[in-house]
Structure formats: C-alpha cells, structure tokens
Design a protein around this nucleic acid. Sequence first.
DNA 1: CAGTGTGAAATGCTTCACAGCT
DNA 2: AGCTGTGAAGCATTTCACACTG
Lengths: 228, 228
Amino acid sequence: MPTVSSEELAAAAGVNSAKLRKDFSYLGSYGTRGVGYDVEYLVYQISRELGLTQDWPIVMVGIGNLGAALANYGGFASRGFRVAALIDADPAMTGKSVAGMAVQHADELEKIIDANGVSIGVIATPAGAAQQVCDRLVAAGVTSILNFAPTVLSVPDGVDVRKVDLSIELQILAFHEQRKAGEGQEEDVADVDVAGAVDAGGSAAAAAAATKQTRKGPDGDVPAVMPA
Amino acid sequence: MPTVSSEELAAAAGVNSAKLRKDFSYLGSYGTRGVGYDVEYLVYQISRELGLTQDWPIVMVGIGNLGAALANYGGFASRGFRVAALIDADPAMTGKSVAGMAVQHADELEKIIDANGVSIGVIATPAGAAQQVCDRLVAAGVTSILNFAPTVLSVPDGVDVRKVDLSIELQILAFHEQRKAGEGQEEDVADVDVAGAVDAGGSAAAAAAATKQTRKGPDGDVPAVMPA
DNA sequence: CAGTGTGAAATGCTTCACAGCT
DNA sequence: AGCTGTGAAGCATTTCACACTG
C-alpha cells in the first residue's frame, strides 16, 4: 500500500477526515490531489516534525520496580530515546545490571548529564526524594522532566514537567464503571455534563494534579481528583 | 481552614475561578454565597461523584517489572481500589509474594473474577499475550480494562479500554525540547499551530494510539505518533 | 474524477459580568 | 460586603462543502 487517503486514515483512527487533512496541512502539503498521501513520505515527515528522527539521551533516576520497568520498556528506543544512564541513590544498587546496563550512583548525576548532553530526565524515585532529585537535574542543565513520583515538583521557568499518575487512568475507568452501574434511574440531569467534563480533561478538578504542571492553554491532560 | 473560595482554589489549581465554579455547579450547589465552599463537605461530594468512596476490586494480569511496580503503587488503595488478585501465566511465578500478596496462576482467572465481583482488569503482560488475556477478562465479566501492553485491544461494545503508553509523555517532552532548541529562526509559521494541536491532544495523529481506544467526542487523550 | 487543501459555518468550551443570596 | 451560580459574550476547535489540482 504505497498511498493512503485521508478517508482511510481517518476511519482507522476514528476521527473526521477533514480534521485529519487540516492537521496534516499544518505540516505542509504532503498529499497529492486525487491520489492521497504517500505513506513512506508522510511517515517520515511526521516523524521528523515530532522529533522521532533525533537521538534523545535521557537519564532515569530511581531504579526501583517502576524504574526497572521503564528501563526495560521497549517503546523508548524505537522512538528516538536512548537511556544514557540509570541512577540510584542506594549504594547497594550501584553496579547492578538492569536492562543490560549498570546502575550508577547518584553522585555521578551531574557528570553524566554533562558528558552526554542530556536534557530530559525521568524521576521514578519515592515521593520524598523527588524534589531534591529534580533540583539537581535542573541545576545540571536538564530542561524537561517526566515525573512518576506522586508529588508536584516546583521548577524554574523554562523547565517543562509532566507528571504521570498511574492511578488516574484507573480512576477514569472506575468513574465510567460507576456510571454504567447506575444507568437510567439517576436523579439529576447533570450527570451527562459531568461525564463530558471528565472525558474532555478540561475540568477544573483536572488541574489539581495536572499532567503538565504549569500551563496556560488547554492541553491533553487527563482529569485528576481531590486529595485522596 | 474550614472554607475555601473559588478564587483561592482556582489560583492553587492554575485555572479560571469562573470555570471552577461552573464545574462545581454541575455537581450541585455546594457553596455558600458570601462565604465559599465548606472544604470537608466539598471533598466528600467530589469523592462520591468520582467513585472514590466505593471499593473497586481489580485484577492485575502479568506480574513482570511493570506489574510488580503497579502492585506496589500506593496510590491505588487510597483511591478506593483493592487488588483482588495478581495473576501470571508463568508457573514459576505462582505462589511468589509480590507487594505482600501471592501471585496466582492464570488458570484461576475466571474463578477469581467471579468470586470477587471484579469489573476492572489491568493488563501488564507482553504485547503478544494481551489480546488473549483481554478476551478472557471480558468473557469472565470484566467491563473496564487498563492496558499497559503496547497493542491496541479489540473489545465488544460496552467494554471500556484505556491504553497507557509510557513513551508518549516522553515524546511530548522531546517535542517541546526540540522546539526550544530551534527557537526563533524556524521557517514556517505553522509551528505555533502544531504545538497547539499537540498540547490540546485533539490532533488527528492522537487517535493512532489514543488512550481511550473507542471514542466519539473530544477527550483528554495525549497525542501519539505514527508507527515507530 | 478522486481526493486534497481550506474558507466559512457550526459546534463546543471558557471567560465575563452581574443578579441574587447569606 | 463578599462570593456563589449562571446567562450571555467571546474565543477555539471541528466539521462542512467545494474550488482546485494531478
């Protein structure tokens, strides 16, 4: 299949074909009228725009269960990410092999970041250590941080933080599950609106533990909840 | 602090106070004019609406690094989730203790779901096993699935699937990082629009590996990418 | 003539602004 | 006097529909 039409792609993706064409048009005119899009060329252009063709060295701090799971995760390499180092504060971890790579001690952090030109860091430490690790990453020159620790990090302007809360997705499923159960005979009409707000991720409650911590415009955040 | 105003909450959350009030109003009128919202009452109402006050038994299938990390994750219990069982297909795993719980063999799947009234399942298996596990979960009565395996699952109508791709968040950071680097002297004006589309999570490309697999309206999905 | 690229219409979401309650 | 709750305005995104092109 050398070419594909916006209609086919849209059907496969479950979106409107006009939206797909408009989205693609922002990247330039890569389609051919009457024919469609050249698959190989399109993949290349989108890959390039999203930065998939670049090599992104990252450091991962905190090699517990989650850190190890992430280090073993195959999806990173295929998307241009290269794990430059696995770092843990526990001396007992130092030298251990995780995902075919020796864990290094936290003392090495700055040296590693500098030597590899790392600008993206992943924090998978316990909550208590996260802010401290974050500060060191930023001081060493990291400007993007992916935070799996259940804490909101504070960072200076110009540094991006995204927070992943693994329980939020479950939360969303449970919300819909609850709705399935109480089907039909609920009291207030507002139900529909609430479901909409949660799906849209635009509800105010979402901001409490927003994925992108500092934000202005709308973004793709999933909704969060009040303190547990 | 017994009460809080929409202004204070909005500032803390980084959103507009009118939006916050409108969101809250969908749940009912829980505020007091001239005073604000009673904190305890508000937390209770929101918790109830989101299903936090219920007990949700879940089964986790695939106890590798990621499964173990999830089993140990503290955030679940505090949000009403109770891990009813950890399940793995590998007989060598059976009986092993993970997060203080004995791993059970996949043969027990149906029995466990039935006995505990489980309606939510978490799949953390390798990609190859995911669809098969999914089918068994659905056949046994599970109606919501959280999928960490890098595969799109097909399910019958009425079953919700959410897919978590751990590399997508990194992808988004890299995208902005690339943008920081190329600041100012880029060729085309479209850059701004592309960034907007990615942040909004509304881009057509997002649907390729959408978090909520089957969808109609806009939702809180993060954007994805073309095949890696 | 099939299918892109895109103005214009339609829809949806956010913010303003103020009436009304405590 | 202070703050909620909400119609109405403003802004953004999505879809329609069609001129245009290979």
